[in-house]
């Protein structure tokens, strides 16, 4: 079977790097891997949904509608934005509750939804949801919210939402983010130990 992971967030949050970690780890586990990395205008604060699919029958680079197994939202409203890919009987959500207000809100005056309302948005699409303040925890611990991504992977693994061997993930983290490795490994461990 194919396992479908959708990572999403805002340009500059490290979504692409996180997706590379997952993809490389899946490859180490012997899977065929498919996915997408849309670049485009990412550097200027746009959304970047990134698909990673592994297993024997993955052909399409995009996850088909309602077939995501895990949605890893590194930003709350970005998780809600990709609900097209989520299905009630299938999809688990891990959401980093670190909000990045779209700057267009400053002009349009739109309000940014609370965590509670994001939860309500996801509810009908989710088999399971874990909300974790990963970026803030990591910012306090390591001085940089970026490690929240790797922490979120740890959370996914310990919650049984990522069928990849722990050793493969560790190897993939080592090869993908060799700089700042110690902090990344510590963040990963914090993720593994996280309980809601």
């Amino acid at each position: 079977m194919t396992y479908n992971v959708l990572l999403t967030g805002v340009g500059g949050e490290g979504v692409l790097v996180t997706s590379v970690i997952v993809a490389r780890a899946a490859l180490l586990d012997g899977h065929e891997v498919r996915g997408t990395q849309l670049h485009g205008l990412a550097q200027r604060g746009g959304s970047i949904p990134t698909h990673v699919r592994f297993g024997r029958r993955a052909h399409s680079p995009l996850i088909p509608r309602a077939q995501a197994d895990l949605i890893l939202g590194l930003e709350p409203i970005e998780a809600a934005r990709v609900c097209y890919f989520a299905g009630k009987n299938r999809t688990s959500f891990i959401v980093d509750t670190y909000p990045i207000r779209p700057s267009s809100c400053n002009i349009t005056g739109e309000t940014y939804p609370s965590n509670e309302s994001v939860k309500r948005m996801l509810e009908p699409f989710a088999k399971k949801m874990v909300f974790v303040d990963a970026s803030n925890i990591c910012r306090e611990k390591f001085g940089n919210p970026i490690y929240g991504n790797v922490m979120a992977i740890g959370v996914a693994l310990s919650a049984g939402m990522l069928p990849i061997k722990k050793q493969s993930l560790i190897k993939a983290i080592k090869s993908t983010v060799p700089r700042g490795l110690e902090k990344n490994m510590a963040a990963f461990k914090m993720g593994l130990e996280f309980r809601e």
Binding site: L41, R44, G45, I77, A80, R101, S104, Y112, P113, M121
Partner: peptide, 10 residues
């Protein structure tokens, strides 16, 4: 669901 748009900005 109402999600604020995230337009690319300078």
């Amino acid at each position: 669901i109402k999600i604020p748009v995230r337009k690319p900005v300078l």
